[in-house]
Design a protein around this nucleic acid. Structure first.
Lengths: 171, 171
DNA sequence: CTGAAATTGAGCACAATGCCCTATCTGAGG
DNA sequence: CCTCAGATAGGGCATTGTGCTCAATTTCAG
């Protein structure tokens, strides 16, 4: 029985990574997300087929859900806060589940170090934030919380410096 | 000279907010960002004109840059860390500028409370993160930093709970 | 050198877009 | 209750983009 031969050349389709060409596509999209495939191809000097294939792959492996492009402020939640939560470690799963029931919690990360959880929370106003904070603190197993209001996006979210550098090139 | 009359009805175009219909459009887009205008119109029971007009408005006022949909992991930066930075307040501007030069810093917020800055940082590996941490700590005016590695996205980013509830409806 | 993977160019039916226009509906202000 | 700006609907039309296929060519790790 013949054994399967190793792939001669690593298929980009199997390794979910992004090469320099993908990075160029991403940078172009960052400028204007509505650029058509045709426009991208022309702009980057690639064939439409190539761009289309790469975009399809990117959509599957490199794109996060669309949610992230929605501005909470335009939904009526202009306040942003980061809440760190200290919990009884062994109840972490249940606590996370409870916290996830709070709509204003947009994102939650488990952390190393002193804190256990870092939550990204939005609110309508200060009073609203206070209410949300209370809901979190009231959860069984939550020991302590620490709320920090974001006063300004000093460094607005960006990915361009990494795209510019090209993928996977440390130091 | 005739004075300008006040607008009779607040134009959605001037108030950058999102109404319930917009929220429905956003939710549909969240399911599949590639939905066409025609498909959206049919699905929501609206005319193509309406959807097209609303989308154009949303694109201007409610959508954040495309960057946010790019997964840093697929660019070769699988590590995510949150670094809180304590600084000499009066040098905040210069320090922010210095930090902004570090490509791996994706996002930086000025905070109330004990810490001054919260940075979202990605890295290739632990060693890489250590290096980045060192760069930040070396900046003139930075007093102390506190690095917390994100071990898991316990609550993945989401906006749906807020969209579902409809805009601006606290408690 | 070899061959799988990637890219290219070309073609084609179909769908979507970007506009345009007019008619109707809606609701806050007077 | 009336008015009117703004929103929606529906129709049309030229242009463009998409999704898909196929065969030829290029690229590059083994």
């Amino acid at each position: 029985m013949p054994y399967l031969r190793l792939r001669r050349r690593a298929s980009l389709r199997s390794m979910h990574s992004v090469d320099a060409t993908d990075a160029r596509i991403l940078r172009a999209l960052a400028v204007d997300p509505r650029r058509t495939v045709v426009a991208l191809a022309q702009e980057l000097g690639l064939s439409r087929n190539t761009v289309q294939a790469r975009l399809a792959r990117l959509e599957q492996h490199a794109f996060l859900p669309f949610d992230r492009r929605i501005n909470p402020a335009s939904l009526g939640y202009p306040l942003l806060a980061f809440i760190t939560v200290h919990v009884q470690q062994r109840q972490l799963a249940e606590i996370t589940e409870e916290i996830a029931r709070i709509p204003e919690v947009l994102e939650g990360h488990g952390l190393t170090g002193t804190a256990d959880l870092l939550l990204r929370v939005v609110a309508v106003d200060a009073e609203d934030l206070f209410r949300i904070h209370g809901k979190i603190l009231a959860i069984e197993g939550v020991d302590r919380t620490d709320t920090a209001l974001a006063m300004g996006e000093l460094i607005p979210f960006r990915m361009d410096p990494l795209l510019e550098r090209g993928p996977r090139t440390p130091n």
